[in-house]
């Protein structure tokens, strides 16, 4: 099969836009109101995530170079500090004002009188809130296993991979809302 050229891709994209143009214009004419579908960017949140992430990666480095299982006491403070930072960040992210439901903003109406606007919202909270909670739960589980003298180096690899995946989600979203 022939590989699509850049020219072809642009042409296809243009065609797609043209196809949906009447719909977009019709929808705009219906309401003609600027919309906001994500919370405001907050520099202190991204700074907080960056700082907590640095602390978490230092903790992972300490765990991976330690003689496991054992030695939890030397890492106890680091665990508590980083888990505390993530819990505080989750609260800060959730406390931020969240825009009204998209359907309500775009059409100015709610489709059914029996449906609450909140039920139409695909995201109750910013997705970064869930990702931070998951990252925090991963660190908490690793701490508990370490504290109980059950953490091995092999198991720590699983926690690191899980943590990195979650934190990447949070960072990507929080940076994307800077618009």
């Amino acid at each position: 099969m022939m590989r699509p050229t850049r020219k072809n891709r642009v042409a296809t994209g243009t065609l797609t836009c043209v196809r949906f143009l009447p719909l977009v214009i019709a929808a705009v004419v219906l309401t003609a109101c600027a919309i906001k579908l994500a919370p405001d960017y907050d520099r202190s949140i991204i700074d907080g995530i960056t700082d907590a992430n640095e602390q978490a990666l230092i903790l992972f480095a300490k765990v991976e170079s330690a003689s496991l299982p054992g030695g939890y006491a030397s890492r106890a403070d680091a665990y508590d500090t980083v888990i505390g930072k993530f819990e505080a960040l989750a609260i800060q992210i959730k406390a931020r004002p969240y825009p009204r439901t998209q359907i309500e903003q775009i059409f100015g109406i709610v489709p059914s009188t029996g449906t609450q606007p909140e039920d139409l919202r695909p995201l109750e909270v910013p997705p970064s809130y869930n990702s931070i909670q998951t990252a925090s739960a991963t660190l908490t589980r690793m701490r508990d296993r370490d504290k109980g003298g059950n953490l091995t180096r092999g198991e720590a690899k699983g926690y690191r991979n899980a943590y990195v995946t979650s934190i990447e989600q949070a960072i990507t979203y929080e940076k994307a809302i800077e618009r």
């Binding site: 579908l37 994500a38 995201l123 970064s128 869930n130 995946t165 989600q169 618009r179």
Partner: peptide
Amino acid sequence: DFIRTLVGLTLLTIE
């Protein structure tokens, strides 16, 4: 969480 992030990013593009 990954799917939620995809939805969030898509909403930003729609916005």
